[in-house]
Design a protein around this nucleic acid. Structure first.
Lengths: 193, 193
DNA sequence: ACATTATCTGAACACACGTTCAATTCAAGC
DNA sequence: GCTTGAATTGAACGTGTGTTCAGATAATGT
């Protein structure tokens, strides 16, 4: 009894991705079986292989698309290095709070990637870090920032900002705008000349 | 052929923990089998159950002991809030760089803990965060620090400091003392009045 | 109305999982 | 030298794994 009403590839495909995203984020890639994903979608396990060649690719595609989307979602704006850094910080927080599951997976499941897939993801992440580091270097050249090490500062800032995802809960004590402001305030002071 | 020369419980017990630590850190709890751990120890899988009631407890014991050790390894020293914060930051980096595998597991494998075990670990982590927050509050009361939110600041600082573990490699560009100094510099400025 | 084809099922494959336990081995105590 | 008991093996238990595929189904194009 295949091809029930309204169940087409256009619908099932995204459903598979969504289910995998949700389950991987909650239980971890290794702890989730293809049968669990299939059950979440409402389909038998075999049907998943119409939408992904294997489980590994399912994970890899989620991570790659996430990072490519992150890179595409923001360009360094015109303005001073301070303005650029503020825009970066606010966008980082906003973007990450909007996609907690993707962010979580992209951080936690790196070791479950096969080497060649890992290299791709690593390169994309590096691009993102480099973008921040360029802003920091420019600000340092303009004497707006005082940093002992721009690479470390970039990594430290990203770690700090991404940390928001570990505690933020919808409807909590603070609005997103407040959080952006608080974190931007700390970053601004940390790099200040 | 049991009880080979020199193989006693005093030796095998720690070996099991060490092997589990190493393998969990490298591949993740869910991706490591009891047979792999046993092979690393040089024993059959059944023998592991002389040293742990089950796989879950093996993970939980590693995490609990790590956090209890972390809490025991440092007390808030006498001195100004600034001095206390510096001591905290330097100790945090030092302690975490010395135990990358335990730190990694304690962060990454939280979701593989059964609820009651999770609660224990969560409580220990909270204690550690609270200790930092107390320093920040004291410094704020003394007008040494200017913080919009001491709880967020504590979490942000810990996230930033722990981030060191994601990039630090033995024998790299920077010595540990340099790293401590760089991070402390950023923290100091970030919370400064 | 019929043929086509995208979509899905359900069973099977070979293997791995965590855990248990009777049987075995060997160092130590008497 | 004999008994005891801690340490370990090796096989077994039932269940689950990722993946494949022949066959069934139903919407679509003609």
């Amino acid at each position: 009894m295949a091809r029930k009403q309204g169940s087409h590839a256009d619908i099932t495909g995204p459903k598979v991705r969504d289910a995998a995203l949700r389950l991987f984020a909650r239980h971890g890639f290794a702890a989730v079986s293809m049968r669990q994903i299939a059950a979440e979608v409402g389909v038998q396990a075999g049907a998943l292989y119409l939408y992904t060649p294997d489980k590994q690719t399912l994970l890899f595609d989620l991570m790659r698309d996430h990072l490519e989307d992150l890179l595409a979602s923001w360009q360094v704006p015109e303005g001073s290095a301070v303005d650029q850094l503020e825009a970066f910080c606010r966008h980082h927080i906003r973007y990450h709070l909007d996609r907690p599951e993707l962010v979580f997976i992209a951080y936690m499941e790196l070791r479950n990637l096969e080497p060649e897939n890992f290299a791709v993801i690593e390169a994309l992440r590096r691009q993102y870090e480099d973008r921040l580091e360029m802003i920091l270097r420019a600000g340092q050249a303009a004497r707006s920032f005082d940093l002992p090490d721009s690479k470390l500062a970039a990594l430290a800032i990203i770690a700090m900002l991404t940390g928001v995802n570990t505690w933020y809960r919808e409807g909590g004590r603070l609005a997103r705008g407040d959080i952006e402001a608080i974190y931007w305030d700390m970053v601004r002071k940390a790099v200040a000349a």
